[in-house]
């Protein structure tokens, strides 16, 4: 379970080798992660060389498909209590219906990892923070559970832990009385993998979700984002989100 964490250097060697023979993307089920930076060890500081982002092609979202959600829940240990109002959801599928035309689109909604995140602005203790590589996280040690970030997030991306949790994943610590949201699977990104939702979407042969470094002009995500028309949700707020959508 934790071998990737314990053995980062060897993982990196293996990863680089795999990259070298050019078979990485195919090897993990066709997930397009070309453009991921090489994995880094724990003592390496995060820099702003990368800005991690996601490009979601909503036209490829399978009807009724919930693979990304299931993968996220499994990866991060988001077991609920069958209490829909208070159970945490880091990613959810949204059905969007045009009131005039009746056209329906399905898409995954998650933390948009804004460049100017309102949740970070309002957090009194600075527990909500943005890493240099653009990933927005909650420091579980300094979150006081005031929920102001949940008031401020325009995407309803955050959840509050309403009750005691057990069986947590070591890489996704969660605590009663604190707020949490999608971490872009930061533990996977740091070791060179794509987030669990992206991987699962690829495995389901939808391939609707692409993850990578928006700052690297040669990355697949940057090339695609430049070619096709995509948009930010609530672009009017000018938050420069890291998650972009095609087909809406």
């Amino acid at each position: 379970m934790t071998e990737g964490l314990d053995n980062l250097d060897s993982y990196r060697r293996r990863f680089l080798t795999a990259l070298g023979i050019g078979g990485v993307a195919a090897a993990i089920g066709g997930v397009r992660i070309v453009g991921l930076a090489t994995a880094k060890s724990d003592d390496e500081a995060v820099t702003d060389e990368a800005r991690w982002g996601m490009l979601i092609d909503t036209s490829k979202c399978g009807e009724g498909c919930n693979r990304c959600v299931e993968a996220c829940n499994e990866e991060n240990g988001l077991t609920g209590f069958d209490r829909q109002q208070t159970d945490a959801q880091w990613i959810r599928t949204l059905e969007v219906r045009d009131k005039q035309t009746g056209h329906v689109t399905s898409l995954p909604m998650l933390c948009q990892h804004c460049e100017h995140p309102p949740c970070v602005d309002v957090c009194p203790t600075g527990a909500s923070f943005r890493r240099a590589d653009g990933i927005v996280l909650v420091n579980k040690h300094t979150c006081i559970g005031c929920r102001y970030c949940m008031m401020a997030c325009p995407y309803k991306a955050r959840s509050f832990i309403h009750e005691e949790l057990t069986d947590q994943k070591p890489w996704a610590p969660r605590g009663k009385g604190t707020v949490e949201s999608c971490t872009f699977c930061v533990h996977r990104v740091d070791r060179g993998d794509a987030p669990a939702c992206v991987e699962a979407c690829g495995e389901a042969a939808n391939g609707a979700m692409m993850f990578g470094n928006l700052n690297d002009p040669d990355s697949e995500i940057a090339i695609r984002a430049k070619q096709v028309s995509s948009r930010q949700i609530r672009a009017d707020l000018n938050l420069n989100t890291a998650v972009r959508y095609e087909g809406i």
Binding site: P124, G145, Y148, K176, G177
Partner: peptide, 22 residues
């Protein structure tokens, strides 16, 4: 009402000055 009222000391010592709460 805070989720972690025991962390009041954090709120009193760690500030994000952009926050209106702070």
């Amino acid at each position: 009402d805070l989720g972690r009222p025991d962390r009041l000391i954090v709120a009193m010592t760690t500030y994000n000055f952009k926050s209106i709460f702070a």
